[in-house]
Write a protein that binds this DNA or RNA. Structure first.
Length: 340
DNA sequence: AAGGCCTCCAACCGCTCAGCC
DNA sequence: TGGCTGAGCGGTTGGAGGCCT
């Protein structure tokens, strides 16, 4: 037995809204509001529509200050950044873009932005390069030398990639566990590096496939801490997840570490922050940490705890370790760690 | 001109969650 | 405490319109 329908399907109109229906709905809501009850609204407003349909029409099309038309580059960047951080939480993303609806952003992502990024993430031989660059400039995925040129991207909406020389340390030592304070000076004279973390999500995928969704799972205990992380064939157990720095330094096994200078991220609250960014490159991909707006951290924490049964994975293929957030730090210092 | 294919987006569907009784 | 209901959300669909052959 399925769920009871929310309305009498036989007596409601479906399909595109007519201008007359729009006018009726708009007039009613502007005069009366929805009365906190969308289900009852259509009857009161004289509409042969499902309440859910009325709600959607109002929220996505009729309500004041809705912005239609082209997305700006800045909006693109915000969407990229948020998607990389929180996945397909369209309503949260929409909240950061005044005038845009979740449906709008979702459609825009699915029809345009995703394809734009897919263009960027083509395998090296198929990428569109700037005229001055040739394919041999591009980096191997898993370099084994002590310096290499990595194909990182200046702008997530650009069709061009911008190789930058990245220095790195491998098998980093205990002293490097002090992530926030121990930035080495190996990188000098770098231009602003990677802008969109999502690019890092795609870049290392072996089969040149975009990865949406993840096999990853994470059991979450009552305090929200994550004690077991599974991804792919690899499973990690950690008894002391409070020591995230240690975990990140040692828990993923052998990996390469490099730094992006002037990493640009965190559009939360409308503010873009540039900082140095450690990235750990591993056979399975990358992990990194990013600073986050405190309110958003709380929001994501709540979302996470509300689905605490077993899953802590995100549709963008990353897991977030929320207990990595050091509550003793100021809002500006809140850090979220990612891996996959 | 016509048919096929593709793109885009409005709208629908089904699920989860919170609030209420 | 458990069931019911409505709101909200994200995934998916269907059709209109544009483009290509």
């Amino acid at each position: 037995m399925g769920r009871a329908p929310c309305c009498d399907k036989a007596n409601v109109k479906k399909g595109p809204w007519s201008p007359e229906e729009d006018a009726k709905l708009k007039e009613y809501i502007e005069k009366q509001g929805n009365g906190g009850n969308w289900i009852a609204l259509p009857q009161k407003a004289g509409l042969k529509r499902c309440g859910k349909s009325c709600r959607l029409r109002w929220l996505n099309y009729l309500r004041p200050n809705i912005k239609h038309g082209e997305f700006t580059d800045e909006e693109d960047r915000i969407i990229c950044t948020l998607f990389a951080n929180i996945g397909s939480r369209w309503s949260i993303i929409a909240a950061q873009l005044p005038g845009r609806t979740d449906n709008d952003i979702k459609n825009y992502w699915n029809t345009k932005l995703k394809k734009k990024l897919m263009g960027i993430m083509l395998p090296p031989s198929q990428r569109k390069l700037p005229p001055s660059q040739t394919s041999h400039d591009q980096a191997p995925l898993y370099p084994n030398s002590h310096s290499f040129t990595s194909s990182l991207y200046k702008d997530c909406t650009s069709n061009y990639y911008s190789p930058e020389t990245i220095s790195f340390t491998d098998n980093y030592s205990d002293t490097e566990a002090s992530l926030a304070t121990n930035f080495p000076t190996v990188i000098q004279n770098q231009e602003a590096g990677l802008v969109c973390p999502m690019q890092m999500q795609y870049y290392p995928m072996k089969d040149n496939l975009l990865k949406f969704g993840s096999e990853a799972s994470c059991s979450t205990s009552s305090d929200g801490s994550c004690s077991q992380i599974t991804y792919g064939k690899e499973m990690k157990q950690d008894q002391n997840m409070g020591n995230l720095q240690n975990y990140i330094s040692n828990g993923f096994g052998e990996s390469l570490r490099f730094m992006l200078n002037n990493y640009e991220s965190s559009n939360f609250g409308g503010e873009t922050v540039k900082f140095n960014q450690w990235v750990d490159e591993k056979p399975n991909g990358f992990s990194w940490e990013t600073k986050m707006d405190c309110d958003l951290v709380e929001e994501v924490k709540q979302l996470n705890s509300s689905t605490s049964t077993s899953s802590n994975n995100y549709s963008n293929g990353f897991n977030c370790l929320f207990n990595s957030i050091d509550e003793s730090k100021t809002q500006q210092e809140k850090v979220m760690y990612y891996y996959y």
